Amino acid sequence: MSDGTVDWRDDWKVFGAVRTLYLHERLPPLLDIKGSVEERAKRFMTSPMRRFWMNLDGFRTRVVNEIGKEREQLWSGDGPFDLHLIPLAELLQGTVEELVRSDSLPAPWDPDWVLEQLTSGFECVDGRLTERQQESFHLRAVIGVCPEDAARAMNVDVRTANAHLSNGWSAIRKSNTDLQVMRWFIESGTDGTFTVQNVRRIEDEMEEEAAQAR
């Protein structure tokens, strides 16, 4: 990386800054988060001061604060807003493997099967949903913004935003992705919100089975 070339997925400090800004601030991605982080990382990597200051944690904190303030300034305006989505397969690649291989994976599930289901769901979101359905899915299910903020970010009313989200989930269901797996991942691996009715939590089923066995 001495020539300043930065791939945000290769450096975990850069990747962490992107993921923190995208997933954990509960604000819409109103600017190119990935591009903004990469540009700042490139300047940092090529700076003459880098040889004296190798504090990548400090770099990450500063970048998150700077880009966070830029987004808050955009969000405080009247709009209309532009959304800059990151494909789920890229954004969640590390989170998925880490979570599926952890002790939090429900006992009845096979890790490889869960990975297949999540991969199927992400591929559907990234490649089959309409642009509007993708926006609503990212805002509600991945980032976890409230319905009113999702509608405002999409420059539509709440009813229209909810309809796009519902249609998106219908497309994911038709792709034969297990929605219970998607619910587990969203509630365990992101700050998002699962909005589909009649899909039970796997934890609830496990508790009921344990109670019946006693």
Rank of each mutant, 00 (worst) to 15 (best):
V196D: 02
L74Y: 02
D7F: 11
E66F: 01
W113V: 13
Q180R: 05
V6C: 03
P29E: 03
L92H: 05
W169I: 12
L105T: 09
N65S: 12
E209K: 11
D110E: 14
F52E: 14
H24K: 05
G127K: 15
A150M: 14
E116D: 15
C124N: 01
E39F: 02
E25K: 09
E131G: 06
S170V: 07
E135L: 03
L88P: 01
V100M: 05
D149C: 08
H164L: 01
G79S: 06
E72V: 00
S104M: 09
R43A: 08
A41I: 02
F137V: 03
A89H: 12
N155P: 08
A153Q: 10
A107F: 09
D126S: 06
D149L: 14
E187Q: 15
G127I: 00
M206T: 05
I143N: 10
C146P: 12
R159S: 14
G127A: 11
A151L: 06
I143M: 12
T195E: 13
T61M: 07
W109K: 03
L99W: 06
R19I: 00
A150P: 00
R9V: 14
E66W: 05
R201V: 02
E98Q: 07
A151D: 13
G127C: 05
E70S: 15
D32K: 04
T20Q: 07
T95A: 06
L23S: 03
V100H: 01
L129G: 05
I143G: 02
A17D: 00
W75P: 00
R128F: 08
Q197V: 09
G168V: 02
R140P: 03
P106V: 01
G144S: 14
N162S: 15
S188I: 01
V181E: 04
H84Q: 13
V114F: 04
D10Q: 08
L83Y: 08
P29W: 00
D82F: 02
W12N: 06
E207S: 08
I186Q: 08
R200Q: 11
E148I: 01
P29T: 04
D204K: 09
V14Y: 00
A150R: 07
V37W: 01
V156N: 03
G16D: 14
D126N: 07
T46E: 14
L23W: 06
A171M: 12
C146R: 10
D78H: 11
V64T: 14
D110T: 04
L83D: 04
G58M: 12
F81A: 12
A141T: 15
R183M: 10
P111T: 08
Q197A: 12
E203G: 06
W53S: 13
E187A: 12
I186A: 08
K42G: 10
H84N: 14
N65D: 15
